[in-house]
Design a protein around this nucleic acid. Structure first.
Lengths: 195, 195
DNA sequence: GCCTTAAGGTACGCAGCTGTATCTAACGAT
DNA sequence: ATCGTTAGATACAGCTGCGTACCTTAAGGC
């Protein structure tokens, strides 16, 4: 234990430090780099400490995702204008923690292979029911309330289209989607389909 | 060498066997399982044989992709009807070798991290220029020629939309996209945008 | 048959990681 | 201060995989 302040972390403080480290390791090195060795080193602790809490790698993964994905919703914009909400939300998808969550499906292919599951399954498992609706359902519902778009039934396919396309682009390029692409998706694809 | 027939493979025959094995290993175990050890074992050869040809794992990966992706185009349907072509092509994306290619971007996240590249970069690198257009550009061009849809400029975004959405769905579920989803994408999203 | 090339086998040393056992020391509660 | 719990350190054994060296043997060409 290399901490200079002389105190050992215990309980929740230690657990938080470990999960912070785990998330950072997952982000930087993917699931193949998500090892007890790497995470313990990153957290400045020893492997038995991790094993005591999470006997399997998958346990630690789920704990990490519960904290950083399930436990912290992405804030939704509420600009009073649907197009602005959509564009803002799509921009958010490409940076920071949200970026990581957007690309999580790709980071966890080995986990899915091991467990015979998929990103959809994981989402079902970890997110509370009210969180499973995408952000686009919410901002569209608000627009309907404001009378900005007609109140007609729309398939989830159409509602979530912008986000799906942005995620796809991010997967292809591993870069944030440029603004002109975001605007293209909203203006040329999505808005024509919902208006 | 455990082959019963008593002969050693040489030259192209051996190389084909290795690349076949490499592709199978990549498909079943992803990039993290794409090891000299695993591929040599799968090919029934020894590791030094692999190292002699491909000194680095990335060399072997590129050779494998060149053979199984760049070297074998996915056949495009030509039914004489755009909707039929589209639906058939999307069905094809979910099975066999085409499925693997569709999901390749997700399988290679570790490679991209190592090399600082992306799936888009890889496609630029490996596919000849005429192959970089998606199948949807071709089937749409045919429909324009047949006079089935008007000859107006369309963004690559709109043209390739069905394929992007199917790939996204496949990533989410790791299963073939059900027919009703394919039909939804074509009928409710794509055709309205191009007609 | 001879020679060259390359396939195939094996061994070595090393690194990284896992899972676990054991011991010491710090922390918190009493 | 004492006790119980747990953090932290370390060691061990084992496995996988890498990179390479060395040797034997098979295949192909002349």
């Amino acid at each position: 234990m290399s901490l200079k302040e002389g105190s050992r972390r215990r309980g929740q403080e230690l657990e938080d430090a470990i999960l912070d480290a785990a998330w950072a390791v997952l982000d930087e090195h993917g699931y193949s780099g998500f090892t007890f060795e790497a995470i313990a080193a990153r957290a400045g602790t020893s492997r038995p400490v991790l094993y005591r809490r999470w006997p399997q790698r998958t346990d630690l993964l789920l704990a990490t995702l519960t904290k950083f994905w399930a436990g912290q919703p992405i804030p939704l914009p509420d600009t009073g204008n649907l197009r602005e909400d959509a564009i803002t939300l799509l921009r958010r998808a490409g940076v920071g923690r949200a970026r990581m969550i957007t690309l999580l499906g790709t980071q966890l292919m080995d986990y899915f292979r091991e467990t015979g599951t998929s990103f959809s399954d994981l989402r079902e498992q970890l997110l509370p029911a009210d969180r499973r609706r995408g952000g686009f359902e919410t901002i569209l519902a608000r627009a309907v309330e404001r009378g900005e778009v007609p109140d007609v039934p729309r398939s989830a396919r159409v509602v979530n289209l912008p986000f799906d396309l942005v995620r796809h682009d991010m997967l292809m390029t591993l870069r944030p989607v440029p603004d002109e692409s975001i605007i293209e998706i909203v203006d040329e694809v999505w808005l024509p389909l919902i208006r």
